[in-house]
Simulated scan of single mutants.
Amino acid sequence: MSIKLLKSLKLHKDKLWSVDCSKGLMATASSDRKIKLVNLKNLDFQLVEELDDSTHKKSVRSVSFRPHSSILAAGSFDSTISIWGKDEEASIEDGYQETELLAIIEGHENEVKGVAWSHSGYFLASCSRDKSVWIWEADEMGEEYECLSVLQEHSQDVKHVVWHPAMHLLASSSYDDTVRLWKEDADDWECAAVLNGHEGTVWCSDFEKSESSLRLVSCSDDTTVRVWKYEEEDENGEDIWTLESVLPSVHSRAVYAVSWSPDGYIASVGSDGQIVIYTEDESGKWKVIAKQHEAHSVFEINTVQWTRVGDTNLLITGGDDGCANIWFFIP
């Protein structure tokens, strides 16, 4: 098993923080305040659009596509979230439709670190250095947003948010060394569980890509990658999650991002510049099946995401070098 570099795209002049993919399109976000869109179809990897860099006054930290649409949310260090989209009713004969700014969402008091759309597209979650997680309800056109809840149980900077692939269950990762799980209850949102165990900032988490699964992978400043599992609901109605596994120790410095593929592989990246890919055997034991050293030369890697183009499994990484590297994974 191995990974092979297909293309290195020098897209930004500063750190590339985040990537997201949808409908054959990749979006990237950077400290240079730019958002770029790249065509993944036919594996041509051509830059098709650069969104207006005057929209945000500081770094764009996170991007997330709304499922089954071209709408894109971007969170910035200027404390705002921008929403972008195309004319969904335009025909093929109209040619390429430029992406337009649909809305600017305000509310956070400090840097927005993460944004994520729910699987249904009804909810947008955001998190911030102001220690809060906000849940927004979006209209069908993606132009109007209502804040449904401001969740303030984290004691420190919240780094990342991610939704379950089939449930309205949200995970948030924080500088307070925890992951919190949130769910809706009686028209409000509440903390369903707190995952304790990491001994440093939790930078990122991701759910297993199975509609019925309730497992989550997390990564941390403590150099570990951990898998958690939902067990049951206790007598007080709180969810019990347990640490199922600590993956083999490979990273020598902080692990910044993890991604769980639909095929069951976990990829991790971080400050040491490595890509590590893990698989689970029939006994439930995780093992390392591929590693790539200096995947972005001497630079740190900030983000990783699995995506599929046709029948091809791709792994995309983004680093401090401003590059999006696209890897072919050979199982």
Rank of each mutant, 00 (worst) to 15 (best):
T99F: 09
G237Y: 05
S155M: 11
V288D: 13
V258M: 00
C219R: 06
E238A: 14
S8D: 13
E89I: 12
W203T: 02
A267H: 07
K86T: 15
K183W: 05
R253N: 13
A193Q: 14
K86E: 15
D221K: 04
S172H: 08
V269K: 02
H296I: 03
F123A: 12
S54A: 12
V255Q: 00
W241V: 09
I316K: 00
H154W: 06
E238V: 10
E49M: 02
L195P: 15
A27P: 07
V255P: 00
D130V: 08
A125Y: 10
G197I: 13
S205E: 10
I316C: 00
Q156L: 09
A186P: 00
K23N: 15
S271V: 07
L216V: 04
A295F: 04
I3C: 12
C204W: 14
V38M: 09
R33G: 05
G264C: 06
D320E: 12
N110L: 11
Y256D: 03
R61D: 07
S174Q: 10
H56V: 05
K41P: 11
W241C: 02
L243D: 05
L6G: 05
S76P: 01
F45Y: 15
A90H: 13
N196G: 09
L102N: 09
V19W: 05
P331G: 01
V217K: 05
